[in-house]
Design a binder for these strands. Structure first.
Lengths: 166, 166
DNA sequence: CCCCAAACTCACCTAAACGTCAAGGTTAGG
DNA sequence: CCTAACCTTGACGTTTAGGTGAGTTTGGGG
């Protein structure tokens, strides 16, 4: 336990984390962090003078979004990247919303954000219905099996009754 | 268009299909079919004397189940295989249900099938809630954006009002 | 100032999931 | 029986998503 708890003062005293700490907290490897950065999934974090990466809370949140989307949708990283990038555009819009600028320009940006979000939403909806479908099918099957079991319990030796679906 | 529409009479006149036709109809490549067979995801189909693969309707349904699960869950093929194998056990159970055999043995089999199905169901449920979560979040965001848009429309030049969540 | 844990940058390796020839056998219409 | 279209089994290539060192720097407690 030698070089811990430093992370210096890049902008002030926000809780910046080194790669090892991020890895430990999020459960991904350091390699994965560098790999995601290389692939553009994570934007290059700030570094300290020596070159050590310093991750901000926002970086970590982005990472966790990536992990979530990945394990939820099972898409290739390239597509995950597109989605997260879209999110980022959206976030950026939120940041630039307050400053009163050209109303028409803002309108256009919002429209774009809506479009992007709608695409994502549609995609998720498809998944959702497909999953729900499968869910109900499994439940149906469970019910059938439990029915059979009940048959067996009630008639100790022979003559089962139901021959229902599935 | 020379050697088409044959598929002979392996067992009677069921609609057996050659690999090319299966590929065309299901949208997977022949390579994928052979690969899945090699990996045990599809059981070796019947062949004609010359060695050409002949796929039954059941084979095709199994294939489509695999595709469905794969694109729905995004799991590695090894896990998909386990799930489909489990399904097969279940199906087999259904086939062997009618023939009156040892009741206790059947009971055990049904219990096993229930267990397997429950595991799958649980897994799906997790996915379902996660997806629903993301779905509602996206909807929330859409609502926010539309609110902003409405603000812009109502006040032609400046002074937006809401600064809600997201 | 010294030292070692922790990070850095290549570079090479792997496993999964196919894609892509190559060389040759099979089928069936003409 | 011939031939075009289809299939078969290899074998090797590719992409994705990292894993695994090797060799080198950096950071900060003692």
């Amino acid at each position: 336990m030698a070089p811990k708890r430093n992370a210096s003062d890049v902008a002030a005293d926000e809780p910046y984390l080194q790669i090892g700490e991020v890895a430990e907290r999020t459960g991904v490897t350091q390699r994965t962090l560098r790999f995601y950065e290389e692939k553009g999934l994570l934007k290059p974090p700030t570094r300290m003078e020596g070159g050590f990466r310093l991750y901000s809370e926002a970086d970590i949140q982005r990472l966790e979004r990536i992990r979530h989307l990945k394990q939820l949708l099972g898409f290739p990283l390239a597509e995950i990247k597109e989605m997260v990038d879209a999110d980022e555009v959206k976030m950026q819009l939120r940041a630039e919303y307050r400053p009163e600028a050209e109303a028409s320009e803002k309108r256009a940006q919002i429209l774009k954000a809506i479009e992007v979000t709608e695409r994502q939403h549609e995609l998720i909806c498809q998944k959702a219905t497909a999953i729900a479908d499968m869910q109900s099918k499994l439940e149906e099957r469970l019910a059938t099996f439990r029915g059979w079991l009940a048959d067996l319990e009630s008639t100790p030796s022979s003559a089962p009754k139901s021959k229902a679906n599935v």
